[in-house]
Design a protein around this nucleic acid. Structure first.
Length: 471
RNA sequence: GCUCCCUUCGUCUAGUGGUUAGGACACUGGCCUCUCACGCCGGUAACAGGGGUUCGAGUCCCCUAGGGAGCGCCA
């Protein structure tokens, strides 16, 4: 049978980075073996499933580039099929009707907890012969003894005793199937050979295997991958910051950076840190995934992101950066070529949002000089070099980085100053801050008109400031 | 409480009985330098604890502790 994996999120929120990682592992496993990757939406919980959530998941998968070969399938389209399986289990006596009230179940659970027992159904209706005419659920008749061995690709063999399990509900009073039933029917019908999922499902697996066995089928291969924790060691959630992959996109993270980061959480290949998707398809092996949970570390993600920003073509980065400029109210068409701006900033930003922020000054005047930078560089001693630079800039014939570089150097030389004594005041005057790309490229991209205007602002700022105190 | 899982630098990890316990992020010292960044060179920092097995244990076994997950008419 050809290798087939699936990603089966329930549409009750956004595509979580933990989900994205299991999706990535499933996708890689399928790609590596020339198999298929299936997307299935587990929306049998009608109360909590939403269309927005489905869209968010599809959007996230598309952004990450985890394309699926089959689906998306929706479980709500397959209710008849689940009922067919449930009915056949019922007919064969492998399942039974139960009319226990929620009150009874709640009381039972409470009593068991008090007795320090594991809460579970007591089999009250197992032999009761509850009629189909009254309100009821269907329970699977779980074996009472023996054991189930889950042979897991990442955990190894895990043994569960049947006497720890109970008769789980497979059809609700309203007639809809529950998770443990629909999952195994889908995986069976869709011919899934590898179930790769979060290890929060490990405890469900013996129940699913028992149903499969009752149906006369053999289980697929399983791989339960460890969960992702927040930086405080608890389960990753909203309070740790971004958890939705779309949030990462909005923060200016590149999809390849997020994928590279996620794959290294629980998996490695020697000392290698950077992987192309092609390399991953070749090198990744689900059997090599770690057993222990790992903490999400945003700094390392930022480092990877900067790496990818640095090493991609300026053209692609510019295309991705453009909407983030828009977020700042800047239309890149109104100023210097965004590709040239990216080339100048590529090594200076770890996210696209940050790159937009540090590039805004190319497109519009800043509100005010950064105070610390101004205090250090916009002083009376800067009046002469700034004045001279201004004069020569206004006369410069060829407004290009090279001549601009020569110009700044010549001013420094003529005034017998170190280059920094000219470049830094000039930078603060033109940029508003003490940090920017090389002064020549900065002047070139800002353009003559804005440069002269901003230098005049700086000269005036120094003079006004000088009147006030001991400057 | 019960069942299952996990435990190497702060974090991600390498390590499959003999290593000065390696790499990466972060932190940090230096170099480069017109600033920031990049890059380069260096540094701090780990086998949870206790018992075994063995000539020898991060590696194998047991116990303890700590952490996580599950125990729903959620998935």
């Amino acid at each position: 049978m050809p290798i087939k994996t699936r990603f089966a999120p329930s549409p009750t929120g956004y595509l979580h980075v933990g989900g994205a990682r299991t999706a990535l592992f499933s996708w890689l496993h399928a790609r590596k073996h020339g198999g298929h990757f299936v997307l299935r939406i587990e929306d049998t919980d009608l109360e909590r499933s939403t269309a927005e959530s489905i869209n968010a998941i599809l959007e996230g998968m598309t952004w990450l580039g985890l394309e699926y070969d089959e689906g998306p399938f929706y479980q709500t389209d397959r209710l008849d099929r689940y009922n067919e399986v449930i009915d056949s289990l019922l007919e064969q006596g492998l399942a039974y009707r139960c009319n226990c009230t929620r009150e009874r179940l709640d009381a039972l659970r409470e009593k068991q907890m008090q007795q320090k027992l594991k809460p579970r159904y007591d089999g009250h209706c197992r032999g009761a012969g509850v009629s189909g005419d009254e309100a009821h659920v269907i329970r699977f008749r779980n074996p009472l003894d023996g054991q189930v061995i889950v042979d897991d690709c990442v955990r190894g063999k895990v043994v569960f005793n049947n006497n720890e399990l109970d008769d789980l509900i497979i059809r609700r009073t309203d007639g809809t199937p529950t998770y443990n039933l629909s999952v195994i029917v889908d995986d069976l019908d869709m011919e899934i050979t590898y179930v790769i999922r979060g290890d929060d499902h490990l405890n469900n697996t013996p129940r699913q295997i028992n149903i499969l066995t009752a149906l006369g089928k053999s289980p697929p291969h399983y791989a339960h991958v460890p969960m992702i924790l927040g930086d405080d060691g608890s389960r990753l959630s909203k309070r740790h910051g971004a958890v939705s992959v779309i949030e990462y996109r909005n923060q200016g993270i590149l999809p390849e950076a997020l994928l590279n980061y996620l794959v290294r959480l629980g998996w490695s290949h020697g000392d290698q840190e950077i992987f192309t998707l092609d390399e991953l398809v070749e090198l990744f092996d689900i059997n090599d995934v770690n057993r222990s949970a790992s903490s999400f570390n945003n700094e390392k993600l930022l480092w990877l992101n900067q790496h990818y920003i640095k090493n991609d073509t300026p053209e692609r980065i510019a295309r991705l950066l453009s909407p983030h400029m828009g977020d700042l109210g800047i239309d890149p068409a109104t100023g210097p070529d965004l590709v040239e701006v990216v080339t100048a900033q590529q090594e200076r930003a770890s996210t696209l949002v940050q790159m937009a922020q540090i590039s805004a000054f190319f497109y519009r005047d800043f509100e005010s000089f950064d105070e610390k930078a101004a205090r250090k560089h916009l002083k009376a001693v800067a009046l002469e070099p700034l004045g001279l630079v201004r004069e020569r800039l206004s006369e410069l014939a060829d407004w290009q980085p090279e001549p601009l570089h020569e110009l700044v150097k010549s001013v420094a030389g003529d005034l017998e100053l170190k280059l920094g004594k000219v470049a830094q005041p000039l930078r603060v005057a033109v940029v508003g801050r003490a940090a920017s790309p090389g002064i020549d490229v900065t002047l070139y991209l800002v353009g003559r008109e804005a440069c002269l205007r901003r230098i005049d602002m700086a000269l005036q700022y120094i003079r006004l400031r000088g009147q006030g105190d001991d400057q």
